[in-house]
Amino acid sequence: MSISTADKILLCVGLIDFVGIFIIIGISLHLAYTKMDVMLNHLQNCPAVMIRAPLRNGGPWGNMFLLGAIMGVMTTPRLYLRDGGASAEDLKNFPAVLRRKLIVLQWTGWGFLLVMFGLVAAAELELV
């Protein structure tokens, strides 16, 4: 029994996506455990982040949740500035390299998740 070309493509895209998601999780955990002090020190006046700061002691899940809050503030600062969840001064003083890493990580994760949902939808609709 041989696999069709469409099935091979679907398998390759699925494997790349699955591995990519695990790489994103690994990079996120690395940032959460190595750069969390720097991030929290630069966001002292951001209530959206500081209210979640005690989760830092909650193990990997707490660190990931806190990192997700920080990534949300970095990715959509206008939303947080409008409702008072972030401080403009803190966002301005945040290290640019770390900000760029967080934003790229957030959008890459969303991209991998979107591809995964697309693969599931294609399999359910039997398009492939």
Rank of each mutant, 00 (worst) to 15 (best):
V49L: 05
D7L: 08
V49C: 06
A122N: 01
T108Y: 00
P60S: 13
D83K: 05
R99N: 06
M50E: 14
A6N: 11
G109L: 06
E124A: 10
L98P: 06
I23T: 09
A32E: 03
R99G: 03
L105G: 13
E89H: 00
T34K: 10
A69H: 07
Q106N: 14
G109C: 05
C46L: 08
S87D: 08
F18N: 11
M116Q: 04
A121S: 08
V115I: 12
G59M: 04
E124Q: 09
L91P: 05
A96P: 03
A48H: 13
M71A: 12
L91S: 07
P54V: 07
D37H: 12
A69S: 11
L11Q: 11
T5I: 14
G84P: 02
G20Y: 01
G68V: 01
G85R: 05
G26T: 03
K101L: 15
I103R: 15
S28I: 00
A48C: 07
I24A: 15
D37E: 14
L79D: 11
M39G: 08
F22H: 14
L66G: 06
N63R: 13
G84W: 14
L91N: 08
L40V: 04
L81K: 04
V19K: 07
M36H: 07
M74G: 06
N93W: 00
E89R: 00
L31Q: 04
G111D: 02
L66V: 04
L119W: 00
N41Q: 15
F22L: 07
M116S: 11
I51G: 05
L125G: 00
I9P: 00
T75I: 02
I21M: 15
Q106Y: 14
L98I: 15
S4I: 03
L11S: 08
W110R: 11
M50V: 03
A122C: 03
A121Q: 01
R52M: 09
I27M: 07
R56L: 15
G72W: 02
V115D: 02
G84V: 12
L102Y: 02
I16R: 15
T108Q: 09
W110M: 09
A6Y: 06
G14N: 13
K8R: 14
L55V: 00
S87Y: 01
G111S: 11
T76N: 15
I16T: 13
N93K: 12
V104R: 07
H42V: 00
V128I: 11
G111E: 03
T75P: 01
